[in-house]
């Protein structure tokens, strides 16, 4: 891996972040109304037009758009994400309070999804039982068509209300994560499993698999020592792309299960047009996305030695 490649990739990453920032800024500006309007001008607080004008001035809400853009961008570059109008606290503070819960949820959700997908793919590839194979291979299409919110509700119905395994309210920190993590993991595992199964099937038709079998290797040996590593590439690519799905899933899951996290915060910010919060969430998500995909790209050469050199060998 040349350092030039790395520098180029980092440059691309910064460009993506800037583009995400700008696009979200423009979109938020295009929305009619704003957070100040929603929070202070509803009439409930009984503020006079003059007081409202002062608040607008304090937040800089009526500055020219270009100036606002420059200010916000400068703030982001220095790590100041502005103030949440709805919550009345700095956005940074709100995010730091909510990030750990979401980080755990998504990390565990992703880990469980990977495990689930891997198990489905490996067991269905190894089993000699035709019915088990068909059953397992039927799971991903089923999983992928299940909406997240519905799955969450059904899991609560079954595990909390019927089986009374996990209390709905007052569950322990870890206990409370079980159902949300499952809810998040199942739909993500489906495309992973599908792609992995396909890749395994394809690699299995390669002549080198026949050669391995001709050496006397069992089908398990062949799968674990020859097929899986070759089949990992497409799955890895997809895993990077699914990170976005994971964040979207977190919004729904946190709302359904009443968890406080970035997802819930996003949902509330959208309702209240809390632009500063949304702007920060978009940029942080984009940063996560860019980092994950950079990691994926750097992983490829470790899996496939053919990618370690820029120039192909003779065929």
């Amino acid at each position: 891996m040349s350092s030039r490649y790395l520098v180029g990739r980092l440059g691309q990453a910064l460009l993506v972040l800037w583009a995400a920032f700008t696009a979200s800024f423009v979109l938020l500006q295009l929305l009619p109304g704003d957070a100040i309007l929603i929070k202070f001008e509803g009439g409930d607080l009984g503020l006079s037009p003059q007081q409202i004008a002062e608040i607008r001035l304090a937040y800089g809400a009526d500055e020219p758009v270009l100036l606002q853009y420059v200010h916000t961008l400068a703030g982001f570059l220095q790590g100041h994400f502005g103030y949440s109008i709805q919550r009345g606290v700095p956005v940074t503070e709100a995010i730091l309070a909510n990030l750990p819960a979401t980080a755990w949820l998504t990390a565990l959700g992703f880990a469980v999804a990977t495990l689930l997908a891997g198990t489905i793919a490996v067991v269905s590839s190894l089993t000699g039982l035709r019915w088990l194979r068909s059953l397992l291979r039927g799971l991903p299409p089923l999983f992928v068509s299940v909406p997240v919110f519905w799955l969450g509700i059904v899991l609560i119905q079954i595990f909390s209300f019927r089986l009374k395994l996990i209390p709905v309210i007052g569950a322990g920190e870890w206990e409370g994560l079980v159902l949300p993590v499952l809810t998040l993991a199942v739909p993500i595992s489906a495309p992973l499993a599908q792609v992995l199964i396909r890749a395994i099937d394809e690699v299995r038709t390669q002549p080198f698999v026949t050669v391995a079998r001709a050496k006397g290797a069992s089908s398990r040996w062949v799968l674990f020592r020859h097929v899986l590593r070759n089949a990992l590439g497409p799955t890895l690519t997809l895993a990077g792309v699914l990170f976005g799905e994971l964040l979207a899933g977190a919004v729904v899951t946190e709302t359904v299960f009443g968890l406080n996290g970035i997802g819930r915060m996003t949902e509330q910010a959208v309702n209240n047009q809390d632009a500063a919060v949304l702007q920060a969430v978009v940029v942080i998500s984009a940063a996560g996305f860019v980092l994950i995909n950079l990691a994926v790209d750097l992983l490829y050469p470790l899996i496939d030695p053919r990618l370690r050199k820029t120039v192909g060998a003779t065929t």
Binding site: P207, T210, A212, R229, N230, D304, P305, R306, T315
Partner: peptide, 11 residues
């Protein structure tokens, strides 16, 4: 085997 190009595991 026939095809030495694909008959060894590339990784």
């Amino acid at each position: 085997p026939q095809d030495p190009g694909n008959s060894l595991n590339p990784v």
